[in-house]
Simulated scan of single mutants.
Amino acid sequence: MLADIKKTEDGYIARFERHFRHSVEEVWAFLTENEKLAKWFSELQVEDLREGGLIKFDMQNGTFIDMKILELSMHSVLEYTWGDDIVRFELYPEADGCLLVLIEKLKVMTDHTPKDLAGWHVCLEVISALLDGRTIESRKAEWEKWYEKYVRATAQVAKKD
């Protein structure tokens, strides 16, 4: 399911929702435990899991970008800076698992935005596969499929400006 992308007063919001047949605790572990985080987003590493703490992004060239944790509520909310933007994960228990909501708050829409959104989309698919004990054959092929859809989706939202 494609992210819902909307214009806001101070930029844009992309909202992804995924239902998992796994507990909040199991999904939370994939967001916050480095061993599990590395399986779906190898460039990220949690350095200090607390409000005001730090997540590092490995640029794969010997440099790292520090991303500050803005809000943390264990097993419920993880929000951190993402360049000029903000990424927020919310988890809600459900009878048969949990709902994960990923919100990216974007200051501006750029040519790179569809790439990032397709990337988040595939990341959520990979988390789902890992939790279910499945593998995704080609993350690149998945990304390419979703990228085209996000190019169209972001163009439609930008057209409304």
Rank of each mutant, 00 (worst) to 15 (best):
Glu104Met: 15
Lys140Leu: 11
Phe64Asp: 15
Glu148Cys: 10
Phe57Asp: 13
Leu99Gly: 04
Glu137Leu: 12
Thr154Pro: 09
Gly62Ser: 11
Glu25Asn: 12
Leu31His: 00
Glu71Pro: 03
Asp116Leu: 14
Arg139Ile: 15
Thr63His: 14
Thr32Asn: 02
Glu71Asn: 06
Val108Glu: 14
Phe64Arg: 11
Cys98Ser: 06
Gly83Ile: 02
Cys123Val: 08
Gly97Val: 08
Thr32Val: 03
Ile86Arg: 00
Phe57Thr: 14
Tyr147Trp: 09
Phe41Asn: 07
Thr110Trp: 05
Trp40Arg: 00
Ser128Arg: 06
Val46Asn: 03
Leu70Gln: 04
Val151Asp: 11
Phe16Lys: 04
Ser42Asp: 10
Met74Gly: 12
Ser76Pro: 11
Trp40Ile: 02
Tyr92Ser: 12
Trp82Ser: 00
Asp85Phe: 01
Leu99Asp: 07
Lys56Asp: 14
Leu131Arg: 03
Gln60Ala: 11
Tyr12Trp: 03
Phe64Met: 11
Ala153His: 00
Ala14Phe: 01
Glu94Asp: 15
Lys115Thr: 13
Ala14Ser: 04
Trp120Ser: 02
His75Lys: 10
Gln156Tyr: 15
Ser76His: 14
Ile5Lys: 01
Ala29Phe: 06
Ala3His: 01
Tyr147Asp: 12
Glu25Gly: 08
Val122Arg: 02
Trp40Thr: 00
Asp161Gly: 10
Gly53Trp: 07
Tyr150Arg: 03
Asp66Arg: 11
Leu102Ile: 03
His121Tyr: 04
Asn34His: 01
Tyr147Gln: 13
His22Gln: 04
Leu2Cys: 11
Val77Leu: 04
Asn34Ile: 02
Arg21Pro: 11
Thr81Pro: 07
Ser73Pro: 09
Glu25Gln: 08
Val122Ile: 10
Lys36Ala: 04
Lys6Ser: 15
Ser76Trp: 08
Glu94Asn: 12
Ser23Pro: 07
Leu99Phe: 06
Leu102Ala: 05
Glu43Thr: 09
Glu51Cys: 08
Asp85Leu: 01
Lys39Asn: 06
Leu49Tyr: 02
Asn61Glu: 13
Leu72Tyr: 09
